[in-house]
Design a protein around this nucleic acid. Sequence first.
DNA 1: CTGAAAGCGCTAACAG
DNA 2: CTGTTAGCGCTTTCAG
Lengths: 336, 336
Amino acid sequence: MKPANLKTLALELNLSISTVSKALRDSYEISQETKKKVTDLAKELNYQPNPFASGLRKKSSKTIAVIIPEIANNFFTLAMDGIQVIAQEMGYHVLTYLTQETLSNEIASINHLRSGRVDGVLMSICSETSNNSHLEMLNDIGIPVVFFDRVCENLPFPKVTTDDYESAFKATQHLIDANCKRIAFFGGSRHLSIMNKRRNGYLNALEKNNIEADPNLMLDFNDNNEENLQIIGSLLSGKNPPDGIFSAIEKLAINTYEICYQLDINIPNEVKIISFSNLRTASFLGPPLTTITQPAFEIGHEAAAILFRLIEKKQMNDIPDKVVLKSTLIARKSTL
Amino acid sequence: MKPANLKTLALELNLSISTVSKALRDSYEISQETKKKVTDLAKELNYQPNPFASGLRKKSSKTIAVIIPEIANNFFTLAMDGIQVIAQEMGYHVLTYLTQETLSNEIASINHLRSGRVDGVLMSICSETSNNSHLEMLNDIGIPVVFFDRVCENLPFPKVTTDDYESAFKATQHLIDANCKRIAFFGGSRHLSIMNKRRNGYLNALEKNNIEADPNLMLDFNDNNEENLQIIGSLLSGKNPPDGIFSAIEKLAINTYEICYQLDINIPNEVKIISFSNLRTASFLGPPLTTITQPAFEIGHEAAAILFRLIEKKQMNDIPDKVVLKSTLIARKSTL
DNA sequence: CTGAAAGCGCTAACAG
DNA sequence: CTGTTAGCGCTTTCAG
């Protein structure tokens, strides 16, 4: 069935299209009486304004884009939830683009934004992103952008992150306090600033405790699960295995559990593990996993809140350049 | 910076707008030479067609809506991934609406569709949805719809589900085979057909084994986590507790683990558990959880594939009314 | 092969 | 207070 439009309403009520339009937007130019007639009929006919027509006219769409590496990931899922909650409140629609950790997809997604389809963008960059030329285009496009979690440091957009360096430092210190001597770092792409911060937190904690960093214990992983399992397997079954692991990525901690189950390595007796993670089941793993838990929902929520202020150009005075929401270390049996 | 449009290109090349438009759409009316000039310039200027203008004109938006109860849920996250993968392939944009298990949100989301903003809808209904009047509006709107997982049985839209009845039957039989005598069923809203199917599978498996169903062991849960924990707690600490639990909802299985940890109840010795679940960590729980795992990614992927055929009116002959993708029972220690 | 022109539904300036 | 009109950028007849 063809949806009702302004013309339908105008015809029915013997009014002009513009009067109907103004009435619906509650313009001061229109009499109460007319407004009532119009809104009543609109409700009756389930009138919904055509978003293309008004988008075309007003150059705004009440839509934002969320560009993230993946959705099957507890952190991004929770962040997404935080974004959606506030978007729904504000009456915005949310378009999602997954880059699948692939640069070409990220570029394609950004190119979509050029068309004016969305009023703003929330973004977490993919692990392949090293050079920023495509992100700089965001500047040219002149669209509000807020980065969250995996931010791009040298671009002039607000950033919402967690205290990656401090948390990583604490995590490492936690292992040291648990008497670990050979602590491994499981990280991801060196292109990501959050990974570098976590790595630095790790290194500085070692240094502060006069432990020499062993390059053999600092592993960078990519997105290939099979390969990652092998790397972890050879590390743990090789000579001089670590007695503590700080994983900067949830997936790698789960992989480590898998390997330990396979090789019958006892956690925490033979190796202790702490990981950045938003697993809801961390407490029920065998053994329960000590985590650095990021406030994922809040990060998404806050990033979206800033974006909406940017879009609606309200309170522009107090748009922060950076927001850092603290993560929480929750000690469980895997580091006991 | 203002994005390039057809006029920009036309002016630059001394061509008419319509020629440029046709050239970009590779019309047979346009010479190869002109096409090349146009596409080259378009690439150079990063031309992206204005989606509002073409949406307005063509009454199609290359956009679909996904309406789901929640995103912080392993099943829906994976389904979403399946949807996104094929949508991206097909060049479609994906709008997500979360109903948060609330009928009023579901109605609001459906009302958004009326405007022609999207070309099709993928939907999983919320647990509050009993009466279908708002879903019937989908019919009036005349937009392609495909239901997945939480389908609405009596509406004439394709449905993609898993074999809920059979899987529930198997799950219950699995507990019976493991020597459970008092098997509890943890379910959700009675409004959802999948819940009824799972409950029926449970009941029929009991019947087939000449076990009398005990109403005290059949629990319906809602979305209130605290309350659910209490209910499970009193069941397990009461007299005549179950020696087996079949949970139709992942979250309830996790809640059960929590209570068992609290009350120091040994799984599987005192109570065995099997649950519908897409937890990636099921194997690493203490103890590993026996699951009925739905092919969540595939369900999303298949539902989207059907939707796109519907939208593009291709292969309309073989649009299935129903697709059932099988779940897998993976036996682990929680039922050993 | 190319161009002119109408119109999708809405908004906003301007007239009345 | 209400109506007329132009035009957002694109597609699509229809003419040439």
